[in-house]
Design a protein around this nucleic acid. Structure first.
Lengths: 158, 158
DNA sequence: TAACTATACATAGCTAGGCTATGTATATCT
DNA sequence: AGATATACATAGCCTAGCTATGTATAGTTA
């Protein structure tokens, strides 16, 4: 039972990467996936500090800084001083940013619809559940202590 | 019924992108996802021409050239002259490359196992089916004529 | 067969995203 | 107050991705 799961996870990542490429090329949008991922995190998680954003997005802190700088220049996010800590800044998605995100998701979904239009109700349910499962694991992984690799060292795998 | 599918596809892409980031950071490997994607395509599709590889990987041709150049330097793929066409070259994965790919997939799966270890048989079946569905669509999309966006123009959607 | 067109790939040059290493300012703790 | 820790910024690098364009070979047609 454990071997199928191992290879299933390998397949899952591989196929997902292909889907991501497919999605990236299927819209006219020239924005990068990172932009939408960042907006997605801010949209679902609300305003947050930069370090928190980096962790949830699973990128290094300087990468988050770059992304936020770009997004700020575009007016899609704003940075607010953190009243409780002068070192920190809160980053929040703007209405414009939220609209752009929604627009992209809609465009994307529309672009991929023809490929998935023939799905039966069963398969749709499968994808819905898969999205739930994966989202749940991604959330869980994001809450590991900073710097912790997702993989536990071999000796920790009971 | 069609609206849920649209938003489901948006969710699917978003969550998959998070999974990809998670996977990228969960192994000690410093290789990029593109490397494994390319090897994956060559592994499952057999030796192929560069343009074919680019299409299947959903990247532009010069990007494929770069990737193949890097992989060749590493000994993970080889380029063979195409006897039938002096302009073209066949690219094939080497035994070393196949071993590296297998090793990475194993490492990756091992790294993510703890996150997915508690899945029940039902959920495993769901993920298996989801992998099938997505893989199928990715294949189908790859076979569209070159340059064709995944989305068909409105007037072509019979 | 010579010339044109099309195809397969390479090269150049750019941008963004990703990283590590390190700097700077503010909190916090002793 | 001084030392340490934390939050973020900056510098500098590499890879992945793109478009535009060049070059060599195939194919096609006059």
């Amino acid at each position: 039972m454990s071997t199928p799961l191992r290879s299933l996870l390998g397949d899952l990542v591989t196929v997902n990467h292909r889907l991501t490429r497919l999605a990236a090329r299927s819209t006219g949008s020239s924005e990068s996936p990172a932009v939408w991922r960042t907006l997605g995190v801010l949209s679902s998680g609300g305003p947050m500090r930069l370090g928190e954003l980096a962790e949830l997005s699973r990128v290094a802190q300087p990468t988050a800084t770059k992304l936020v700088t770009n997004l700020t220049a575009r007016g899609w996010v704003i940075r607010l001083a953190d009243p409780a800590d002068a070192r920190a800044t809160q980053t929040a998605i703007t209405a414009t940013g939220a609209a752009a995100l929604a627009g992209w998701r809609d465009e994307l979904a529309g672009a991929m619809l023809p490929l998935f239009a023939d799905l039966g109700a069963d398969d749709i349910a499968v994808l819905q559940r898969a999205v739930e499962i994966i989202g749940q694991r991604a959330d869980a992984a994001a809450q590991l202590p900073p710097g912790t690799p997702v993989a536990l060292p071999a000796e920790a795998q009971s």
